[in-house]
């Protein structure tokens, strides 16, 4: 055969200026967020050094105080990577606190039974929402909005009052400190880090994880490439439901009570963390490590405001809003650059 094939040159038709290449790098948003975190941390160090900001425990507290948010945001990362959205996260967390407190306090069930039960309920709820989204081709926004109301309503069916948890095994678990040199992590923080590592592995080293990216990149293509795109979507919401329930358990552990109004609006914090972490809301691009930095940035804003002392905690929301705006603009600039 004497077929000589013209060699296609990718470089020809694309600007390869350094700026363009940097802008096209999918890791850029994550690096921006990580850099932002470092800058904020350094600023905190220089300003509040005399108040103990530099202690290792202050840093580790970021993980302890935001463990539940991290787990919820990891779940949300799956959903957003697939091009969807899950608004039920906060309600599932609230429901799980109520459900757990009720089972432990009112029904006297042991934790070994309560934990799998709560996780199962969360995963099942996610599965059902995913099933509806896929099979009836309904916008995830609306289906998970229904989930938001449903779970919040179920909280009130269990009890209109908050339920404090006095169970000895819960409080001993909540107070367990895992020592790391001079500082410590809580069980919740360690669970959250394990979930993060597992999510990283799943997203990058399993077929399921790559399907999540493919579906988020172009759902129609994924279907025509013969990928089980429906199953992937349903699984993604199941993962999110599971993570929300797990976040609910961590939240219960953190706060040691169940309350029908716990974690109201936390789905928005989770989504904000994912977006600030560099995941595109349109799906298909982003990293779960970015979500970690997103959560840390949100947590760091809270700590900085606490250290400042004079500022109202509402400044957390304002700072989050400003950051979110900035990051969405960065996303827009990046996707616009990629299209041309």
């Amino acid at each position: 055969m004497s077929t000589t094939t013209a060699r296609p040159k990718a470089a020809d038709s694309h600007p390869t200026s350094k700026a363009a290449r940097v802008l096209a790098d999918r890791r850029l948003p994550v690096m921006v967020t990580a850099a932002l975190f470092l800058v904020m941390y350094a600023a905190g160090l220089s300003r509040y050094q005399n108040y103990g900001f530099g202690e290792a425990q202050v840093f580790l507290n970021l993980f302890i105080d935001n463990s539940y948010l991290l787990v919820a945001a990891v779940g949300a990362t799956f959903v957003i990577l697939s091009g969807g959205i899950d608004l039920s996260v906060g309600s599932v967390i609230g429901f799980t606190t109520m459900f757990t407190a009720w089972l432990v306090e009112r029904q006297g069930l042991p934790l070994v039974l309560v934990i799998p039960l709560a996780l199962g309920v969360g995963a099942l709820g996610g599965f059902l929402m995913g099933y509806v989204i896929h099979n009836f081709e309904i916008q995830p926004f609306i289906v998970t909005l229904a989930g938001l109301f449903l779970y919040r309503g179920l909280c009130l069916v269990i009890s209109k009052e908050s339920i404090a948890i006095g169970d000895a095994s819960v409080s001993s678990m909540a107070q367990t400190q895992v020592s790391l040199g001079g500082a410590f992590l809580s069980i919740g923080a360690i669970v959250a880090l394990v979930v993060l590592a597992a999510a990283f592995y799943v997203l990058h080293y399993t077929r399921f994880g790559r399907r999540v990216y493919a579906v988020g990149g172009n759902e129609q293509s994924a279907l025509l490439m013969g990928l089980p795109q429906g199953g992937t979507k349903i699984s993604v919401y199941t993962v999110s439901g599971f993570c929300s329930a797990l976040a609910g358990l961590l939240f219960t552990l953190y706060i040691q009570s169940g309350d029908p109004l716990h974690a109201t609006g936390m789905e928005l914090d989770a989504i904000a963390a994912v977006v600030i972490g560099g995941t595109l809301l349109t799906g298909g691009s982003g990293f779960v490590i970015g979500t970690l930095f997103g959560v840390l940035v949100l947590g760091l804003i809270k700590s900085l405001i606490q250290f400042e002392g004079t500022l109202s905690s509402w400044w957390t929301k304002i700072a989050t809003g400003v950051l979110l705006c900035a990051f969405i603009l960065i996303q827009r600039a990046m996707t616009a650059r990629r299209k041309t």
Binding site: R26, R207, R210, Y213, G217, N218, G226, L227
Partner: peptide, 23 residues
């Protein structure tokens, strides 16, 4: 009908990626 966000290699193999011990 491919996924522009994935690498060329991945686009060629997605759905039947070679795995080792499940990864």
């Amino acid at each position: 009908n491919l996924c522009p966000n994935l690498s060329v290699a991945e686009n060629i193999f997605i759905g039947r990626e070679p795995t080792r011990f499940g990864r």
